[in-house]
């Protein structure tokens, strides 16, 4: 994948470092980030910068050296962005997390209740009943940012778990990674879906078209995956993610068939109806419940991760549905050339 286009002064600066055009200047970027964002979830410049820095830990960019992954300058910028982003996620979910922590019942039961009680607008229902073809295509483009590296962020938790929770996560991830069969690798199945719908299935093909809110969903997950202190949040996120997947996947599969997309397009979503009905049980009971039994102090972060996942998902759905309701595209207009931003 090629590096993305910058979206503001911070991403322009950082991308210039990564491409070797200017020497890293952390104090300069800190100054640019001094004023807190009005809404970090929809802050194009901040989310794109964080996404770019995080991508260095996945498969990276063809035009950026792999050595940048652990550069102190990149980590310093990442830290500033992460602190602001985590603070926002914690503040936005504080009441929910408090309520669920105070509630009676097991961890799994409370995780399922958290998902069930989420009454934010449903993208799945819209795709099933109302979306037209171009909206369905936009939906797949939004999803492509995560689904082409599906499950990878949660894999970072494996060496940080012990005992039964580790066994359960590996069992779940083995299924995500195709149980030894490339055709069943979930990211590969999503690539097949994209191709069946006439879309580009290469990683990062649509990065310059996807708005900050969708990057924030990915960045939240990557943050939980990369930081050992947030492992419980990563697993809570996984549980909420799996527990809120079967029904929307069924709806999306129906929507794609209603719109006449070729049959392979819906196969990925069919698979997720079934797979995630398994994974939600494994993630809630065999991972999260076990984690909290091993160390009760983890319960708050398990619920924080779950609530944050639900929150970010709702922000994406709200943004996309609002754009469509007002007759607009939910993708970005063409970005300006890098030199306009001084990159």
């Amino acid at each position: 994948m090629r590096a993305p286009l910058p979206r503001g002064p911070v991403s322009a600066q950082v991308l210039s470092w990564l491409k070797g055009r200017v020497a890293p200047d952390v104090p300069h970027v800190r100054r640019l980030l001094q004023e807190p964002s009005a809404d970090i979830i929809c802050d194009e410049d901040r989310q794109l910068t964080l996404w770019t820095l995080y991508e260095l830990h996945y498969t990276g960019f063809d035009d950026i050296g792999a050595g940048w992954e652990w550069s102190p300058e990149c980590l310093a910028v990442r830290r500033v962005l992460e602190t602001e982003f985590e603070h926002h996620m914690r503040a936005s979910t504080r009441d929910t997390v408090r309520a669920v922590c105070a509630r009676a019942g097991g961890v799994a039961e409370r995780l399922f209740a958290l998902v069930l009680e989420d009454d934010s607008p449903s993208l799945g229902r819209y795709i099933q009943r109302q979306a037209d073809r171009s909206e369905a295509v936009e939906f797949l483009i939004h999803r492509s940012i995560y689904n082409l590296k599906e499950a990878d962020a949660h894999t970072w938790a494996i060496p940080r778990l012990t005992g039964a929770a580790k066994v359960a996560l590996v069992e779940l991830q083995y299924d995500e990674y195709g149980t030894g069969n490339l055709d069943r690798l979930h990211s590969q199945m999503f690539a097949d879906t994209l191709r069946a719908c006439g879309l580009d299935s290469s990683v990062g093909a649509y990065i310059d078209e996807v708005p900050a809110v969708t990057l924030s969903l990915n960045n939240g997950l990557t943050m939980f995956g990369l930081h050992r202190r947030l492992t419980a949040a990563a697993m809570g996120h996984l549980a909420a993610f799996e527990a809120s997947s079967s029904q929307p996947s069924r709806q999306v599969a129906r929507g794609l068939r209603r719109l006449g997309f070729p049959e392979p397009a819906a196969a990925y979503f069919d698979e997720h109806v079934e797979a995630d009905a398994v994974h939600e049980q494994v993630a809630t009971r065999n991972i999260c419940e076990v984690l909290v039994t091993q160390d009760p102090r983890r319960s708050e972060d398990v619920f924080f991760g779950a609530a944050a996942g639900i929150y970010l998902d709702a922000r994406v759905a709200g943004y996309v549905l609002n754009a469509w309701a007002t007759g607009r595209s939910a993708l970005l207009p063409e970005l300006p050339a890098p030199d306009v931003l001084g990159a």
Partner: peptide, 9 residues
Amino acid sequence: PTPRAATGE
């Protein structure tokens, strides 16, 4: 029915 929705204090 399972007992739930106890809201703390």
